[in-house]
Write a protein that binds this DNA or RNA. Structure first.
Lengths: 158, 158
DNA sequence: TAGTCAAAAGTCAAAGATGGTCAGAGGGTG
DNA sequence: CACCCTCTGACCATCTTTGACTTTTGACTA
């Protein structure tokens, strides 16, 4: 294998495969030392090889006792629904309650989330909760709906 | 376990669980000695792990015969859990990710919402989604958490 | 009773321990 | 050469650990 990133990637996937749980916890510094590279190389490997699209979820904690946790997740099969909804969200300059409702209803219809969850989120994104200028409301809604889509991508085994 | 704070946290929770009453009384110096750390480490553990929103109440007394008493708050009415959390949300000037997480975990523990719902909301309220100034983030989180409480109130028969 | 002292616990800021980011250098390939 | 990955290191953010200094409390003493 030519580059160190590929080697580290293989190593991490191997460890992941061998672990009972579908998750591993590593110390960045340890891995860097093992492969004699700078610590930020590990971030590079994670950012390029362990992305959500590829079915991995990464969490970490800094400070004493810090760690990086890599989890294997199952991607939702309806990625196309999500990307089409993301397009809608991007294209609309103004995101009003009606649009939020439509998006949420669609997600429920596609069985990507439960009625109750949609209900909750609808309230969080209501005009009442987002007591702001129209533009700011749109901004928050856009950000949060996109964040929602991101979570729904895997929404399984996580 | 990764760091001494986590170890002490687990220990205290264990002792709390094993005690008949839902409260324990410790001597700071004793705990520090047992875990070979400085006494103020105990304060750190208490301040970060036994907070009000997590459902703990801490009282103490200095001087001879001093102690630290940790009490697990047990609220029988869901209504009480909600209003206690609303108080926390109102009182905190800054609502960071950690506090949001604590509140959501508490709501799940108290069986007022499902794990997955908490997961979704956590992501909507993350720093990443709320890409704003600190104060604006706090404002949105406060508004939305309060909106959440409101929904949970009638959803759980308040 | 008031003052003093020692024995707790509290506070806070600095140091330590991790991980994250980003821009630029390095290197391989069409 | 141009472009796209990789690699590196300086600088940043966050969580933990430590210790000096402060406050509170109760017992003892004058």
């Amino acid at each position: 294998m030519r580059n160190i990133s590929d080697v580290i990637e293989q190593y991490l996937k191997q460890v992941l495969k061998e672990s009972q749980a579908n998750a591993i916890e590593i110390k960045r510094q340890d891995i860097a030392q093992r492969f004699e590279c700078v610590p930020s190389q590990i971030n590079y490997v994670i950012n390029t090889r362990f992305t959500v699209e590829k079915g991995y979820l990464v969490e970490s904690k800094r400070g004493g006792g810090g760690y990086i946790r890599i989890r294997r997740v199952i991607l939702h099969e309806k990625q196309d629904v999500l990307s089409s909804l993301m397009d809608v969200i991007h294209e609309h300059p103004r995101l009003n309650e009606q649009l939020v409702e439509n998006v949420l209803i669609r997600l429920v219809e596609e069985q990507m989330m439960h009625e109750q969850e949609a209900q909750l989120i609808y309230h969080l994104l209501s005009d009442e909760a987002l007591n702001l200028q129209v533009d700011d409301r749109s901004y928050i809604r856009r950000q949060q709906l996109l964040a929602l889509m991101k979570v729904l991508r895997y929404r399984n085994g996580g």
